[in-house]
Design a protein around this nucleic acid. Structure first.
Lengths: 231, 231
DNA sequence: ACAAAAGTGTTCCCCTTACACCCATGT
DNA sequence: ACATGGGTGTAAGGGGAACACTTTTGT
């Protein structure tokens, strides 16, 4: 854990006149056709309490490094799509150890990339609908709500959905991703018309024969995330 | 200055294992029909160098308190519209004194509320088009560009423009605010049609006789900032 | 009279939405 | 044969963009 780079004693020292900065991550993934988040479990007199994975930002580490380290520690992977959300610092007493300001990120990862590397004694994969009902440590409830809104918004004006799809995919799989994250059904014909008109995906001339009627496989024209009116 | 709440010696100490958090503010205002920002001047071997107004976040102060203090110090006013932008922390060496992470806000203020309270030896009011060409200290160039984009975006889906207008105003004054900030002309008829259809402003039945042909005066239905499709 | 800004409607186009049936394959 | 998901087109409505002339006042 990053916190070891710092001397614990001085981080929480009463002498120290500046607050500690923590970096907390909402790790989103699609698991069993549901939008889920990774939560850290803490045992607290026999009941589970949850919080978001996070690290203290130590001196001379960039935020990207701290993010990578946090994600790696919980999932074993790096190089995922991430976005900074915002900084929560108006509840100075939220952490009993001292004044902590929390910088929130979200990450978007494919569950198949990390599922077998997770230590399930430390981490739970929780459907977002359930996570939103939990009381989380610190102000992590707020962060979760905010992260979900941002993710939904981002789907509408960028092609980030590509980070959740395989290299090649059925158009219906792409639509499913939208439906799962947005939490509502979309019209099949209108969806296809829109996506094709954007010219962001192209046919591969291969077929996916895993369903009954074989389906065309598509791939994105390029890997870079584009800002573009999707919905 | 807030920095005095902290012991300078330990903030910049090499022993200290956490970075310092600074809060920097892009203070936007309309001045002489131009969108401007307030920049702090520093004398550096006979040439002016500029940076954004900012403060170190001291322990046990909320971000709101630090923001208020920073704004008050530069403009003498409080209680303005503000929005958090983002946190810059990937250039660990940007400040020669040590590792500083910068949390950026922007503020939107009426110039007539503070013009006579500014100490012009410390602060300049700079048109945004000029400010964008300046080389600012730290990563403040980036913050400026980002702040402007966010402000423009926000005009399109909220009624924040109300914080820049007088209690009562001509519809053309409202349009001018949009044109100044967006940096482009809008169609008069389409603008009015849109604004009236939103039912966010109402007639006051007063006239502004300061122009040639007297104009109707309007006011906003309420003071709360609304999320609403404006443009 | 002239200058300056206020006030006011219509048309066109595009994008969104709603909606239903046939097709290719596996079992 | 039947079940499953794939594939396809059209019509109606709403919102945005383009566009010019008359009115009211001050000078």
């Amino acid at each position: 854990m990053l916190i070891h780079h710092a001397k614990q004693s001085d981080i929480w020292s009463h002498e120290l006149s500046i607050p500690v900065l923590a970096l907390d991550v909402v790790i989103f993934t699609i698991y069993k056709d549901q939008l889920c988040v990774l939560l850290t479990k803490s045992q607290n007199n026999c009941t589970n309490w949850f919080s978001l994975p996070g690290s203290i930002v130590s001196k001379w580490y960039t935020l990207n490094e701290v993010f990578d380290e946090t994600l790696k520690r919980k999932t074993g992977i790096t190089g995922v799509y991430k976005e900074q959300l915002c900084t929560f610092g108006d509840n100075v007493a939220r952490d009993p150890r001292g004044h902590v300001i929390s910088l929130a990120y979200y990450a978007l990862v494919k569950s198949e990339d990390f599922l077998n590397q997770v230590d399930y004694t430390q981490v739970d994969i929780v459907p977002i609908v359930d996570a939103l009902k939990l009381r989380l440590f610190y102000e992590h409830d707020k962060i979760l709500i905010y992260a979900l809104e941002r993710l939904k918004g981002k789907l509408g004006y960028t092609d980030i959905v590509k980070v959740l799809l395989a290299e090649q995919f059925r158009i219906s799989q792409m639509q499913e991703m939208y439906e799962i994250i947005l939490g509502r059904k979309l019209d099949k014909r209108n969806f296809q018309k829109k996506i094709f008109s954007l010219k962001i995906i192209c046919e591969t001339w291969k077929k996916d024969t895993s369903t009954n009627r074989p389906a065309k496989l598509y791939q994105f024209e390029n890997k870079r995330i584009k800002v573009i009116d999707m919905l």
